[in-house]
Design a protein around this nucleic acid. Structure first.
Lengths: 353, 353
DNA sequence: TGTTAGCACTCTATAATCTCGAGTGCTAAC
DNA sequence: GTTAGCACTCGAGATTATAGAGTGCTAACA
């Protein structure tokens, strides 16, 4: 496994992968002989290809066909062979500059543009709190027995919920509650705020009214991050039809299902986040993916930062022969773009709080 | 076009459609002769089928094949022939009884369950304001130059937005703004609140500060319903692979795209809403659909009520040979279920405001 | 020793052909 | 009006033929 390929073998492997990326068909020795500037005959290439096959970098689908890259081959390509390339994602940059009132909308647009630019399927996860702190919390009465709880976190993510109360709360009580909540909870990391904490709060404040206690519980529920609920937007699922190796009925159906369900994508992203070195771009090839239905795919992911510890993941899903150069570079650039746009809103100077 | 079919022709047409629903293959005269209890020979059926073909209710894909129903045939079936049937959607009912904290989650679950129950693709539109009135509005400061605007409408739909200000607003100004907004806007239909209205408001209140004016504009933007933005959840798009007539590559790709994009679905739902008789279940067959890519599909929709004038649409998309009885009945029952669950929250008595 | 031309061989994809059978429409008898 | 009978049609699937891309090997060459 630990072989080192000589220069020529590497160049041939690279040429095979490049060609296969374009055509999606097994690559023959003659093609490589012409495609490269090695100036060797197809026979020589054949010999080298035979070696590469033995070493496991390329595969022969059947005796009299050309070769296609193996997972191992792609891996070497991604790790060593491919070159950095200037990616032009002007469209995305422009889109970002438009007024970005709702993050949700921006994310949806980003995946969409990325999908149509790359011709692969794309996904983006809505940033998670992860260490973000509570910035502001407020209860207001909207009608006799209904309150609205509004919670703002660092990164300006807002959550809210209508709370129904058994009896009407007077203004004074609501005011007290707001004071209690803000003085005790502001600045705390979201994760630390749970029902138990709220219970302690109730004790300290000497609250005995059932109604108020229930309201506090509801507030806690509002604040809490739904662990299950990592939201993901996807786009361009049907791009997989552009790659014959993925688009036979059963495979396509499974793939698109996985895409539609999103749970497995979410799991992948979550694992991804747990890893220490969570910055930068990462490539999963075929079997490296934990998702059964995607054994024939590759996924390239990047994590983008929102400032204040919030971050999300953006990913591109395509066939193993996806254009890694372009994809990796697109993601790198896009990641920077997202970091900038979200990190500091364009219409305001960098936040100091 | 205005022919009246005799009883036997109707029974034969019905049998053809039923059989075709099951098999998806052209139906022959012998099959019908055995399938029905008409006790006539296949030759007789052939004669009748020939008539039905002339009348346009069934189609012959090619000379020596059986018949398949035409759009006109399906239409007659839906309008006259099919029987009401007891639908069992116990699963959905149970799901509804679970605590339904976030409407969004319920809707997502509903489409999912419906899709897996029916084996068709499903969609549901998030209820629109449509005549709903503003109930409560509040600006709060979350940090030096950031405000959060919270808007609650009848039906307890909440919108919110972070507003960035050029300079810090003092508490008094914010208080004044809240007063101004609430006294002038509460109870007004959402549609009536637009930038022009806010402008008049500014004049009346004698506001000249640019900062405050900008905040008001942002509030207006928050309130406003984004006409484009009818949100739709879908599920079971890959169910179309279960129907060979829809699942050849190009068609499937287009269909799923339409599904993923959702814009066209949204347009359909919007048209649907505009119609006067917007209650009850409606069936679109093939060419009756305004969506080019869905000419080979049928869609059954139902509108559900949320009380206070808000309503959404739920739809099932399948092949023309979909099981209309089941689908229509499922939707009818589900519609009632949704009306009840959303109309009055389980944990509170019916609202009186 | 590495490179190359040449050639027989393999295997798939595509097209061409054949065959079967379901289904029709028509006719004539009931 | 219904039915049996029968010749005819046409597509789906199986079968076979054909072409060509690509390989592996051998022998010659630098």
């Amino acid at each position: 496994m630990g072989e080192v390929l000589d220069e020529r073998k590497k160049r041939i492997l690279k040429a095979i992968i490049r060609t296969y990326m374009e055509t999606g068909e097994p690559v023959g020795s003659r093609t490589i002989s012409k495609y490269t500037d090695l100036n060797v005959s197809s026979a020589t290439i054949r010999n080298e290809m035979s070696d590469l096959t033995d070493l496991g970098y390329i595969i022969q689908p059947h005796t009299s066909a050309g070769r296609i890259p193996s997972d191992k081959g792609y891996r070497l390509y991604v790790d060593e062979l491919m070159q950095e390339k200037e990616a032009e994602i002007a469209e995305i940059r422009n889109l970002m500059i438009e007024k970005t009132d709702k993050m949700e909308k921006v994310l949806k647009k980003v995946v969409k543009v990325l999908a149509s630019n790359t011709n692969y399927a794309t996904m983006i996860s809505v940033p998670q709190y992860s260490g973000s702190r509570l910035k502001f919390i407020q209860l207001s009465r909207v009608s006799e027995r209904q309150l609205v709880a509004v919670v703002v976190c660092e990164g300006n993510v807002i959550r809210n919920q209508i709370i129904h109360t058994a009896e009407e709360l007077d203004d004074e009580t609501i005011l007290k509650l707001n004071l209690l909540l803000n003085t005790n909870l502001n600045g705390l990391p979201i994760q630390d705020i749970n029902l138990g904490m709220i219970a302690r709060l109730k004790e300290q404040a000497g609250i005995h009214s059932d109604v108020v206690a229930n309201v506090l519980d509801a507030v806690a529920a509002t604040i809490q991050v739904d662990e299950e609920d990592l939201e993901i937007y996807t786009s361009g699922a049907t791009n997989i039809f552009k790659y014959p190796e993925l688009s036979d009925k059963s495979r396509a159906s499974e793939l698109i299902s996985t895409f539609e369900e999103k749970q497995q994508l979410a799991a992948l992203v979550k694992d991804r986040m747990a890893e220490e070195e969570s910055t930068g771009v990462r490539v999963y090839i075929g079997d490296e993916l934990p998702i059964e239905t995607m054994k024939d795919c590759s996924i390239v992911t990047a994590t983008y930062e929102l400032g204040q510890g919030m971050h999300g993941t953006i990913g591109i899903i395509g066939p193993k022969r996806m254009d890694y150069e372009n994809v990796v570079n697109s993601l790198k650039t896009l990641k920077q773009e997202l970091d900038t746009v979200f990190g500091r809103k364009p219409e305001e100077p960098p936040d100091s709080c």
